[in-house]
Amino acid sequence: MGLSDKVEVPPPIRFVLNWGRKYSLWVFNFGLACCAIEFIATSMAEHDFIRMGVIPFAHGPRQADLMVVSGTLTDKMAPAVKRLYEQMPEPKYVISFGSCANCGGPYWDSYSVAKGVDQIIPVDVYVPGCPPRPEALLQGIIKLQTKIQNESLKQRYSAEPLTVEAG
């Protein structure tokens, strides 16, 4: 009987709900390759993304609402990514981290690599780089938080294309 995706929530309540949602992201690190090391570096002391409210290393997909796919997606791994994405509860967000997850990266012509994780799951923010600097992931998280602040869940879960206000 959830209402937030069926009813257009009035702006003051929407502000509060979005604010709460954007500052309490639990991240499910789907680390596949070298970008996972950069993700771990971002979660450590020097560039800390926990100060943005993103708590690292959720215990499983069911306790997460942000999935960061970092690394090369091979054809053999693709069903697992899809299954884990579907096991996450709504509302969920995906950051594609690194050029392999964005578009296949340096392995675009390989016989076993999927050209980007957006071939199987919807992606909210793409962070380019090979591997991206930890600061790039921090910027990606901030961009995602801006997107969450300005979104309405009804629009996100409807079939129409999403319009995101610039922010």
Binding site: D75, K76, G104, D109, S110, Y111, S112, K115
Partner: peptide, 25 residues
């Protein structure tokens, strides 16, 4: 290492890389 449905022997020189066929280098 390869997924079960994979057909062919990839590291042979005659194996066509579909990505290179579709989009040249």
């Amino acid at each position: 290492l390869l997924p079960d449905e994979f057909e062919g022997h990839p590291l042979r020189k005659e194996f066509l890389l579909m990505s290179r066929e579709v989009k040249p280098w």
